[in-house]
Design a protein around this nucleic acid. Structure first.
Lengths: 214, 214
DNA sequence: CTTTGTATTCAACAGAGTGTTCATTAATAG
DNA sequence: CTATTAATGAACACTCTGTTGAATACAAAG
């Protein structure tokens, strides 16, 4: 029942592992919404009643797994220091703590691909977008007043979606760039904008800001 | 819904309308996955059996509604002519066919907010992103080789996500810009990139390309 | 090795929702 | 008005749910 942080019984660990594998299989096969407790128990060769000793129902199981992965990733994201990151961006080096974040994402590649992909959960994806927005793109909010033809909230949506789409593509396409490459490209995208990142424009000597604003 | 088809019996139309209203209510209340046929029939004051005269099950009903809205919007999107649009962009006018697209989106505001929002369906959202990508952002694929530090598919993900996030924000925030404003801003974003759109850079006399590349 | 605690199993249960059928009632179009 | 078709109500077998109580299997500690 309750978590004995000290010693998880072998049987519990085994059961949880089997339930997890069965769930992931089934979600990939039929989509998260069509998976039943009976399915999971049967696939895992576990008594149906045993499922209820671990989780309230299927949504609860998914939620616990999502929360677990999310908090692991959040822990790494919260250690990011933007100013430090920009120092690395100027030298075109990968910011170490950034690499750690991408490593953590890669660690949960399978789970994230399933939960954030086409069969995935929109609100879970948005939760990540908000996490990154809160810790990385805060500055974006300070858009200069005046000549802009678009409201600031629209600009925030534009920029955060761009970066998040970039990240999603990495996850969905099989993570075929290393964490170092991702960290380097992403901080560059944020710091200098897409033009410099594409090599179509020189890096300004004094440094630049998001989307080449100033 | 639609009035012009040959001979939709009044009773059928009435029933479909009641089922539709009940479904939308319930999806907003409990999320699409938790709505039962019994729920819908009861909310609509319709015999449960009658539901099955119109739809196979709840997912089927949602699918039909989604397909219907999607094809209406696609019909407008397919009439877009990018070159024509850019002529309007240069004059900073709203491209009429673009306005028509946004009007069509606005027509289905409620439905889209429900289906593409946080409680929404990821694959449906991606379907729209692909539609827009295919008809609007084709050019983005032709990223100049060479100095770029990011693979082209990543750049496509970056740019299309940016524009799609912009659109989603319009839908989710209550569509508080007119179709004309949206059409003007969006074509400008695509044509000149965010800098010019933000008024932080002058429009180049000869015209520019996506994200100020050239 | 034995004891002790507990995780898991098994069978059974009522409840809710499903999808179908059929005879009956009601509304519609012509 | 009449023939047609939609909607109703009731019943059916079915699946999945979430819970219970007694029996069993297994892990950890002495």
């Amino acid at each position: 029942m309750q978590d004995n942080a000290n010693k998880p019984d072998r049987r519990q660990a085994r059961t949880k592992q089997l339930l997890y594998e069965a769930l992931m299989d089934l979600v990939r096969e039929k989509g998260a919404e069509n998976v039943t407790v009976t399915d999971i128990a049967s696939r895992a060769n576990i008594n149906r009643g045993t499922f209820y000793l671990h989780y309230r129902d299927v949504p609860d199981m998914l939620q616990q797994l999502k929360d677990d992965v999310f908090s692991r990733i959040r822990a790494k994201v919260e250690k990011l220091d933007i100013k430090e990151a920009w120092a690395y961006a100027d030298r075109d080096e990968a910011y170490p703590q950034g690499v750690i974040v991408f490593d953590e994402l890669a660690k949960h590649a399978d789970f994230l691909r399933t939960m954030v992909g086409a069969q995935g959960d929109m609100s879970y994806a948005l939760r990540f977008r908000e996490l990154f927005t809160a810790h990385i793109y805060e500055k974006v909010k300070y858009v200069p007043e005046g000549k802009s033809i678009m409201p600031p909230d629209y600009f925030v949506a534009y920029v955060t979606s761009a970066n998040f789409g970039f990240l999603m593509h990495w996850i969905e396409s099989g993570m075929n760039l290393t964490s170092e490459e991702m960290a380097r490209i992403m901080i560059r995208l944020m710091h200098y904008g897409p033009l410099v990142s594409l090599g179509l424009k020189e890096v300004p000597p004094g440094g630049a800001k998001i989307a080449e604003e100033r």
